[in-house]
């Protein structure tokens, strides 16, 4: 009898064990779709992309629960149709109606970047997440209150359990989830990319513009916005907007006077969608940006070496419009229409 009982128990235990592994597969790996022309994206070992984590991050990205008075989400200032910028605004309003001091940055190909915000103040995507949530001129929330709301929510504890194996929502997991979603926003299907793959042809103006872009005596854009890949080196540079910058830029982070007025080189991908331009949104059009580099460079003491001694007015009217035509080929319409990045 005892032996029989023992066998039975073992059998039951065996079944339970099998069931256990069958019903809890854990989060599934998310396959990043990197278009040809972009490199492999580095993903931190302690925050691998998972289907459940990405889906959770996307829900959080669009959820106003993260702001102080629950009226604004990340997407309020990072709108998909404008390559995740704030649609024509130089500065964005926060929940209290206060204006920020810098232009909302586009969100795509973030996994290739090293520092976040215009001055690189945020060390990684995860750490960046809590900045806007707490900033008084942005979402102005107390993180402890936000975590309280999430932990008391009818869905979030279950979603965090699926993504991270725990129902207890911490700031670290909140940061990880949103960072996972943000890493999946990849842009590499512009007309330019399709042209390289033999799927599209450039117009004459676009082809001429590409030559101006690379010509060292003309556009000379490639020192900072190397052609192809991410269209930026993501370094910090003073691009001669002002002889003395009102915004200390990178120097706010490094405390080095030599970094004064330096800002992160933005990607030129989707640039036609992200007006206005520069850290303070001072230029409304791409034509104004091109004109700045053609004739408007100011001699800041730490003006970037590649912008020193530039011949003024070296671009003809034709060359300027060709250059702008080329910049328009960098727009990725799949980025702004992809339902994977839209509000769930």
């Amino acid at each position: 009898m005892r032996n029989k009982l023992f066998l039975l128990t073992a059998l039951v235990l065996g079944i339970v064990a099998c069931r256990h592994t069958a019903t809890e597969p854990g989060p599934r790996a998310y396959q990043l779709d990197i278009p040809s022309g972009l490199p492999e994206m580095p993903v931190p070992a302690d925050n691998p992309l998972t289907e459940e984590g990405v889906a959770l991050g996307r829900k959080l990205f669009y959820d106003p629960i993260l702001s102080g008075n629950q009226t604004m989400s990340c997407a309020s200032c990072h709108k998909q149709e404008f390559a995740f910028t704030d649609g024509g605004k130089a500065f964005s309003f926060g929940i209290d109606g206060k204006l920020g001091t810098r232009n909302a940055m586009p969100l795509f190909n973030l996994g290739y970047q090293r520092g976040f915000f215009w001055d690189g103040g945020a060390a990684d995507i995860e750490s960046q997440v809590v900045g806007p949530i707490q900033n008084p001129v942005e979402m102005h929330a107390d993180l402890a209150i936000v975590l309280g709301r999430l932990n008391a929510h009818s869905e979030y504890p279950t979603l965090f359990e699926k993504a991270f194996g725990t129902r207890t929502i911490s700031s670290v997991l909140l940061m990880k989830a949103i960072a996972q979603f943000e890493r999946t926003i990849v842009s590499g299907n512009s007309k330019w990319d399709k042209y390289l793959r033999g799927e599209a042809t450039l117009t004459d103006a676009e082809s001429r513009g590409r030559i101006v872009y690379e010509d060292e005596d003309k556009g000379d854009c490639t020192h900072c916005h190397s052609i192809g890949s991410t269209f930026s080196d993501f370094e910090y540079r003073n691009n001669g907007l002002d002889s003395v910058s009102a915004d200390a830029g990178r120097a706010l982070i490094t405390f080095l006077a030599t970094d004064s007025g330096k800002f992160k080189t933005p990607s030129l991908r989707n640039i036609a969608l992200t007006a206005p331009y520069m850290h303070d949104g001072r230029f409304q059009t791409l034509e104004e940006c091109v004109e700045h580099y053609n004739s408007g460079l100011q001699h800041a003491r730490n003006l970037d070496p590649s912008l020193r001694n530039k011949v003024k007015n070296r671009l003809s009217t034709q060359q300027k419009s060709d250059l702008v035509a080329f910049l328009h080929t960098l727009t990725d319409y799949e980025l702004i229409s992809n339902p994977k990045f839209a509000k769930p």
């Binding site: 302690d46 925050n47 915000f117 001055d119 103040g121 945020a122 060390a123 990684d124 995860e126 750490s127 960046q128 997440v129 809590v130 900045g131 806007p132 707490q134 900033n135 008084p136 942005e138 107390d142 993180l143 402890a144 975590l147 911490s170 700031s171 670290v172 940061m175 990880k176 706010l252 982070i253």
Partner: peptide, 19 residues
């Protein structure tokens, strides 16, 4: 920013613009 315990961002002791 992804630290826990005393260094958890929840304690309101992190900068908003600078990690």
């Amino acid at each position: 920013g992804t630290q826990s315990g005393a260094l958890d961002p929840v304690h309101g002791m992190i900068w908003n613009w600078n990690t």
